[in-house]
Design a protein around this nucleic acid. Structure first.
Lengths: 337, 337
DNA sequence: AATTGGCACTCGGGAAGCTTGAGTGCCAAG
DNA sequence: CTTGGCACTCAAGCTTCCCGAGTGCCAATT
């Protein structure tokens, strides 16, 4: 159905269109890529490709432009992942290695990805549910007010104030802290929830109301409001004039945590590189954009995802290379922290 | 020089131009505002206003448009601050009151401001230097790794990991924690730095290297890298088509913490409402935007600033009303936390 | 059966010219 | 100082025209 040359033609069309942002015609094609056939032959091939839905004409008498389906084929079968240059790799490593603390790692990653790809970068914080408790700290701010700080092995620090039903003493707090840490330290957060639920017994009757307040905050914050923080950056790259169209929608989508979650959620759970092209992605208003995403994680495990968002007309091999490299390095950095 | 009617004309021009985004002519002016004079009279006034530099013509045979100087006069002498409606006030209060924790307050404030003004909102975290220590927590993550968590009375929680020169025991950590909290609790961070510097004496000789590592991290993080976090939102509002021009510059400026700092820094230190119009603002690339900013704080004191950024052609009275109201409410919320 | 040159056809986009009307400046009269 | 009148200007929109890139098809060639 599609012989080698037709595929080569598609590949060439994608490349040219990506780099010029203009519909590409048969003549230009034979000139720029050394296909040893005449334009007429290419035209025949293009007719077939169009019939199959891989390319389309913006209007009669214009060249061809890849469709989403065309990009899909290109990504799946025609383009490799372009590895970064050694210089770029080194730059990434040193830039990331200089960071301290999870927040810093995340913001640096966003910048890095945005700069590397000249597009919008999206990075998710390591999932809470998949990480383990490293420490729980209780700080008595006032007789009836505690600050609960939860630290995970992925470096996340979550905090929340609690209003207690009864006044408490430092001793009570110390006891509660000891109980919590003894039972939760090193446990997965998913396990932790169940454990906390069964912990009331170990608390002296008098302190139970307070303890319960703390427990419920912990459970609530860790599971139900399983806050998946997502950060993005590089929006200035959206101002590249080929966008303008639908720019507002894109910015709105980016500012809506929920939407971002849905977007990243759609991408495969694996730590593999995933590409969502145009209409393939689940978010209305991002139908003219593509998302290149990858999971990242410390051990073998995927803790969260990061991604790059750009126009469907993007440099897929390059973007994929950047995303996968950054994902790997972020994982490494996270291990050390 | 400028009699009352001329001022009225300027006011009318600003209002009309802001609402229509079209140069406003003499006829339209007499029609829409009930000035009891003829267009010809208005033309004379406009000629004077133009000569003085308050308005200008985009081209011959077009109406007039306010200049930065014109907006300045408008803001200083011709427009009050438009108070929010009671309904809006209530909405703000309940929305902000529902937040828990400083992060939440800040992100909610950004959203609120952006939505209220339909422009870009910028909010700075409460200054570290002006707040006081509420608690310092040390968590032993590994024999040679500590997590230092600093909690201020403004609700900020700063964390940083420290690599220790020597391995340590839980006891050492507990002692250090006790010493730190005993000496620093309730102190201003500015004082705290000096106190920490004189604290080495109280530490057993054997633990001094470790303690010093912790001390230096504390000092470093609190003073030198006096990290002023700034958050912004509402960038989707930039897509309103009158902008397009210079959009890239604006987005770039927003993503650059340093630039934002400079911008807010320029605005008066008082908790008063400040307006920077067009070329008045110090940031290249924001020369077509205006900034309406205000300090906010818990006690009588200004802890940080918040602002709204929009085109010079903005609704100043409305924006000023929103900014000042939100600043006040945020201050109140911060008190309670 | 695939490839190729030739040719008629299409149509977006830029250039040029035209018209329209909003808006001005100026002046003389009230 | 205000006003009506009037000539003048010029951006923006419309129409028209033209050009050329690019196509599809066909008959000839390999």
């Amino acid at each position: 159905m599609l012989d080698d040359r037709k595929l080569a033609v598609l590949r060439a069309i994608v490349k040219d269109y990506v780099s010029t942002n203009e519909p590409v015609g048969s003549r230009a094609l034979v000139d720029r890529h050394n296909l040893d056939v005449s334009p007429a032959t290419i035209r025949n091939d293009m007719a077939v490709l169009e019939e199959q839905g891989f390319i389309t004409q913006p209007h009669t008498s214009a060249g061809r432009v890849p469709t989403d389906k065309g990009y899909r084929l290109f990504v799946d079968r025609l383009s490799g992942i372009k590895p970064l240059s050694p210089a770029e790799r080194r730059a990434i490593q040193t830039y990331l290695a200089a960071s301290y603390g999870l927040d810093d790692v995340v913001t640096r990653t966003v910048r890095l990805l945005a700069q590397l790809t000249r597009q919008v970068a999206v990075v998710q914080y390591p999932s809470l549910t998949r990480s383990a408790v490293r420490h729980i700290e209780l700080v008595r701010l006032a007789p009836e007010k505690l600050l609960v700080v939860l630290i995970t092995d992925t470096g996340r620090v979550e905090q929340r104030t609690v209003d207690l039903p009864d006044p408490c003493e430092d001793d009570d707090v110390a006891h509660l802290r000891a109980v919590l840490n003894a039972s939760l330290d090193g446990r997965r957060l998913t396990e932790a929830v169940e454990i906390v639920a069964g912990l009331t017994d170990r608390i002296p009757l008098a302190s139970r109301p307070n303890a319960d307040a703390v427990f419920s905050i912990i459970m609530e914050n860790l599971v139900e409001r399983n806050e998946e923080k997502i950060v993005f950056g590089g929006t200035a790259n959206l101002a590249a004039p080929d966008f303008s169209q639908g720019l507002r929608e894109v910015l709105e989508a980016l500012e809506e945590q929920v939407v971002l979650m849905r977007l990243l959620g759609e991408a495969s759970d694996q730590s593999l590189l995933t590409v969502l092209i145009g209409t393939e992605n689940p978010v209305e208003g991002l139908r003219t954009t593509s998302l290149v995403s990858s999971g990242y994680g410390s051990g073998g495990e995927t803790l969260a995802k990061l991604a790059v968002l750009g126009p469907t007309r993007m440099d897929y091999p390059g973007t994929m290379g950047a995303v996968s490299a950054v994902a790997r390095y972020v994982g490494e950095i996270l291990m050390e922290t």
